[in-house]
Design a protein around this nucleic acid. Structure first.
Lengths: 193, 193
DNA sequence: CCCAATATCTTGACGGTGTCCACCATGGCG
DNA sequence: CGCCATGGTGGACACCGTCAAGATATTGGG
């Protein structure tokens, strides 16, 4: 049915998508704690109750937002991995991409790992997929960097590196580490040759 | 003036302390996001507005709570540092203490590094002192572990280790790493001999 | 010793938020 | 064509942080 009137249609058509994007946009300037369902609805030009039909509750929306944010974080690392040549450089580049993406979108980054959003041990399907892909990416990079290591050692070193990169990013967003120190710190952690 | 009646005195006497302790107690079972000033006041048996005379606002209380939590985190590491003998063992013990304390009190730990509580770059005086003490503790442990390193290299490696330990703790509280993997991961990061 | 100034606590109000409920518009299927 | 599931609306409720104004205890100066 063609709508001649300029008034908005009663049914939005793609509200879920719109709301998720609005929430992500708000996270560019506001903390997750300051993100209200009502404000997101307002941004989308819709009643304060419309989101409930798509996400159930506030946590539901945030879970979706976290999935999107995680997908973007993963993509940033994949781009960095493809651009690098040598194993050590690739490992460094992936870590740097992680940290830089976190610093560029600190509030979205925080949502990904907020235990209030995704309670420990019960990740969303999409989130679990992205996390696994991220672990694989990292494990591969570590394996190329230390080809002689056992699978267990590789996995352990990968976990340690994830922790290091994640911690550096978190501490930097909290203002406890200067931006310039991040890459050198990461570099200091990787043994040379 | 001696108070014979059993009714609570109009003036509490030590309300600030009581409120901070109540807040810390609530953080044992609830996330910081779920911690309301009114609930804290209720726990202390006081009107919903009493806290404002001591902390100004919610953030004020949380800042104090963060200071206390940081002091406890620091103390846990200091105990671990004293108990260990060899440099490498001490470094590992300090890191493990950090992670274990974070896992034992995840919500209080989160408050320490919550950018909403202490906005980046403007720490409280007491918080700055504790953070500095923590950095010194770590730097000393690193220096003992790698005595031949330059001051800059020591500082850089210390920052990297802080990041690693902090990240491992954060990821573990979010359910992304199993508890048992934390110490081995940390161990894998410290070169042997 | 008394009283005023001050610090502390209370009651009351306001706007904002998440969520539940009942109701209405729409479009696709029988 | 009519029905009804889907998706949107408005209203209500309890809770929250915060501000304003009033009540009460403590304290220091005369």
């Amino acid at each position: 049915m063609l709508r001649v009137s300029r008034s908005a249609p009663y049914h939005h058509g793609n509200l879920a998508e719109t709301l998720e994007r609005a929430a992500l946009a708000l996270l560019e300037t506001h903390t997750a704690a300051a993100l209200s369902l009502r404000e997101v609805a307002r941004q989308a030009g819709v009643s304060h109750n419309a989101p409930y039909h798509h996400f159930g509750d506030r946590q539901g929306l945030l879970k979706r937002v976290a999935e999107r944010a995680m997908a973007e974080l993963l993509a940033a690392q994949q781009r960095a991995a493809e651009a690098a040549q040598l194993p050590r450089e690739r490992l460094l580049a992936v870590g740097a991409a992680y940290v830089e993406h976190a610093l560029a979108h600190p509030n979205a980054f925080a949502v990904i790992f907020d235990p209030d959003v995704c309670e420990p041990g019960h990740p969303t399907e999409a989130m679990a997929v992205s996390i696994r892909a991220n672990e694989d990416l990292l494990t591969d990079a570590v394996a190329a960097f230390r080809p002689e290591s056992s699978a267990e050692q590789t996995s352990l070193f990968g976990a340690a590196l994830w922790g290091a990169v994640h911690g550096l990013a978190t501490l930097a967003t909290a203002g406890h580490l200067p931006r310039e120190a991040l890459r050198p710190a990461l570099d200091a952690l990787l043994p040379r040759d």
